[in-house]
Amino acid sequence: MKYLSALLIFCGVAVLGVGGFIYSGAYQIGADVPHTTPVSWVLEILRERSIERAARDIPVPELDDSQLLLAGGPDYNEMCSGCHLEPGRTESDMSVGLYPAPPDLTTHDEEEEHGETQAAARQFWIIKHGIKATGMPAWGPTHDDQRIWAMVAFLQKLPELSELQYQILTARGEDDSGHAH
């Protein structure tokens, strides 16, 4: 009974301490100051586990298709490359200024990390739903699934593309207004 009371008092003090710290405004919330190691760890685990759980049952269509690359390339260029970069470019104002730093998708190979199917499902989910407090928007409300899968197909090839290949695949032709998919 004595131990239980002590434990309850300890928990109460801990909750009050954490609550007081949060309310005090002492935590540095500026994007130019990194999170403390424990906060980084908690947020990363929260993010990765949540995405893994949400994306695990998404059926992945055939993505090795030139038409999907042609549809997804210009969208990537206009919607994503400002943060996630393009071949021949190592940083941008957004990639330097955002915290957490957006992954450089020209070098970051999700397939290596998660396997081909899971990587595609994760990318689809992230593009569609976005990630809270990271700067990654949810494109789902304004883009249908077919258009998002086209971007995922393009992402699968992006780490292998040269600057010329990227330029040709992402340039909108004269007939391509960007809205007909």
Binding site: D64, S66, Q67, L69, L70, Q165, I168, A171, G173, E174
Partner: peptide
């Protein structure tokens, strides 16, 4: 697919 997409894009551009 990358080469096919590039050739297709340039063919469309030529037609335009």
């Amino acid at each position: 697919p990358v080469m096919k997409a590039m050739l297709q894009k340039c063919q469309d551009e030529q037609h335009a």
